[in-house]
């Protein structure tokens, strides 16, 4: 078994594992009892998608995919920050004016 075969097999296994984990965290997005649970699962989802795209980059040899992965990581971070700010703001509105 040559190194290229090993690489082919490994990326396939990694893609299957990552696909499985994407599905599992989508389950959490759907059932997550609160908004924060869903935001957390979505945050994990972007990290997993980033790993998926990185693995695809190795498998196809097209390193342009790596830029997509990094942009995805950036986007996921900003989305989580925005959602957290939203939860904070919603909470502040509920607490009334004595908070801050």
């Amino acid at each position: 078994m040559s190194a290229a075969d090993v690489l082919d097999l490994t990326t396939m296994i990694a893609l299957v594992m990552l696909g499985l984990s994407l599905l599992i965290s989508i389950v959490r997005v759907v059932i997550g009892p609160t908004l924060a649970d869903r935001v957390l699962a979505l945050d994990l989802l972007t990290v997993l998608a980033m790993g998926f795209v990185g693995t695809v980059a190795i498998r196809t040899g097209l390193m342009l995919y790596l830029d997509i992965a990094i942009a995805l990581a950036l986007l996921g971070f900003l989305a989580t920050i925005a959602f957290a700010r939203y939860i904070l703001a919603k909470n502040l509105g509920k607490a009334g004016k004595n908070d801050r």
Binding site: V6, M17, L20, I24, R28, L44, L48, G51
Partner: peptide
Amino acid sequence: IYAGCFLMLVGAAFCLLASVGV
């Protein structure tokens, strides 16, 4: 290549464990 494959498998395993944990 073998080292990279190892890193990739371990990384994918941690991703799977993270989602199972969530």
